[in-house]
Amino acid sequence: MCRSIHTLHNFEPAANDSEIDAAALQYVRKISGTTRPSRANAEAFERAVQEVAHATRHLLEDLVATSPPRDREIEAARAKERSAKRFASAQA
């Protein structure tokens, strides 16, 4: 999975439009194999991004969470800590 795409479900505050759009763009880039489509493919590429973002919004609205929402700041701190441990051991 592309490392730029992060979990958007069950966070407080909820994912905003820019996060959803960024995830959709990364997904389309990944499956198309290009970060910048040719002019001939630009319209299809952009349409795919919009459709993926639209479907993502519907999915996030419809999902039911059984656990309490996670805090974005706490999760970001945990990820930073995991990264520091992983890269510290690689340098040792």
Rank of each mutant, 00 (worst) to 15 (best):
E43H: 12
N10P: 01
Q50T: 08
A15P: 08
L8S: 14
D17A: 05
I74M: 02
A22N: 12
E46R: 07
L25V: 13
A88V: 10
L63M: 15
A88I: 14
K85N: 05
A48K: 12
Q50D: 13
K30Q: 00
A23L: 09
A23E: 07
Q26N: 07
A88C: 10
L60C: 15
T66M: 13
N41F: 10
E61W: 03
R72A: 04
S67N: 06
I74L: 03
V49I: 01
I20K: 15
R3T: 15
F11H: 03
I5N: 13
I31R: 06
T56M: 06
R72W: 02
A90S: 14
A90R: 14
E73M: 07
P68Q: 01
G33K: 04
V28G: 05
P68C: 04
Q26P: 06
T56D: 10
A53E: 11
T34Y: 06
R47I: 09
E19Q: 06
S4G: 15
T34P: 11
P69H: 15
P68S: 10
A77F: 11
T7H: 15
A88Y: 10
E46S: 07
S67H: 07
K85R: 02
A65F: 03
N41E: 14
D21A: 04
K85V: 08
V52I: 12
D71T: 08
R78L: 04
V49C: 02
V28A: 04
I5M: 10
R36V: 10
V28H: 05
A88Q: 12
I20F: 00
T7R: 15
T34V: 02
F11T: 07
D17T: 01
N41Y: 10
S18F: 11
R47E: 15
I31H: 07
F87C: 06
D21K: 08
S32C: 04
S89N: 03
S4I: 04
L59C: 12
R70Y: 08
E81Y: 02
A79P: 08
H58G: 04
A53W: 08
I20Q: 03
Q91D: 00
I31P: 07
T34W: 04
H6C: 01
V28K: 05
D62W: 09
L63D: 13
H9M: 01
S38K: 07
E81S: 00
A44R: 10
A88P: 08
